[in-house]
Design a binder for these strands. Sequence first.
DNA 1: TATTAATAATTGACCAGTCATCTATTTATT
DNA 2: AATAAATAGATGACTGGTCAATTATTAATA
Lengths: 198, 198
Amino acid sequence: MTKTLKHELKADILLDKGIELLWSKGYNATSVNDIVKIAGVPKGSFYFYFESKEDFVVKAIEKYFDDHFTPAKEILLNKSVSPKQRLLNFHEFRYNILKNEMDCKMGCLACNLGNEMAEHSEAIRKSILNKEQFVLALITEVIQEAQDLGEINNLMAAADIAAFIEDAGKGSMTTMKEMNNAYPIDNFMNMIRNVLLK
Amino acid sequence: MTKTLKHELKADILLDKGIELLWSKGYNATSVNDIVKIAGVPKGSFYFYFESKEDFVVKAIEKYFDDHFTPAKEILLNKSVSPKQRLLNFHEFRYNILKNEMDCKMGCLACNLGNEMAEHSEAIRKSILNKEQFVLALITEVIQEAQDLGEINNLMAAADIAAFIEDAGKGSMTTMKEMNNAYPIDNFMNMIRNVLLK
DNA sequence: TATTAATAATTGACCAGTCATCTATTTATT
DNA sequence: AATAAATAGATGACTGGTCAATTATTAATA
């Protein structure tokens, strides 16, 4: 194993383990000590791999999107399915993960960190915004496609519908955490199915 | 000034100043030291007035709702206006505060703390949930009223519409903080005006 | 009513532990 | 031998929380 490979491997382990902690506990409740301990990496190494805790979190956000959005993206862009059905499958897929894999407790790493840190770290705010707007652009395109086909109505601009759906999903994740219960995302799915994507 | 009055006054100052800090910085980034310093109250007194930091935050959440929801509630329950118009005025009022008084940066204290702490403090989670469900019940009633009058459609249960609107509002606050920009709440207002409360 | 005893309120100094970060050193690679 | 990579351990500042000592208030007594 070459030096650089080993290097990137350790940085990746730190990121993977750090993402878990950040996701559940947020920025301020996750310490560098926690991260290196759970990753089995010497404490002193952390600042060899990353400039600072903030820098680490920016890279964690990027890895989070790359790892977690990719499978959902495949569903969204699967051209063998109609645009409207793709949108529904896409949301079904994402929100099933929240419900079943995560027991309604953790929400989305980016939303959590955005809520906690947007006002206090420009680097973190911008990295989240950047990734989210990339996602939003993809969804907007599919909504536009569905509108062009007459599958969903034309009353609102595709970009506004997409932004609203994403925001409503975010909020339902917050309430889901507060309730410890899937009602908010079930209600969300019903609303987009029966009202927004009509 | 009697002893008990002075007592409650100091506790109130701690709560008011603490709410400001918690609102902006969240639970873990707000220290007891920060709170007593800004309130001009001796450190030792904090634990005379409150059992713990967690207990303080629960009481801060209660005071936050009592102080901030009350004026909006008056608008919501003002029987001289039709139910649908009351709903629109109510949301207009709340989201103007976010935009104009708070520069799109702070969101809602309860949402912020819910996102950060729901998984880690049952006391905080329950106090937020309790207050939010009280608010939700009031909104639900007004939506029901509007449905009965035929002012808005009957396709969804009033409780589901109310929950969805509140969740969408929450999410738009998160994105507002991330974007540093009012677009998400403007888009939210348009959506409830043109789609949900039709 | 004046004095004392008992109780309650209030306080800053202090605790053990943790924080993010840095530096001096060791280990591995050319 | 020279250079770069990796790490152990230490740093000062800060954490939530405690507590013995002080002060203010009330109750009891003469």
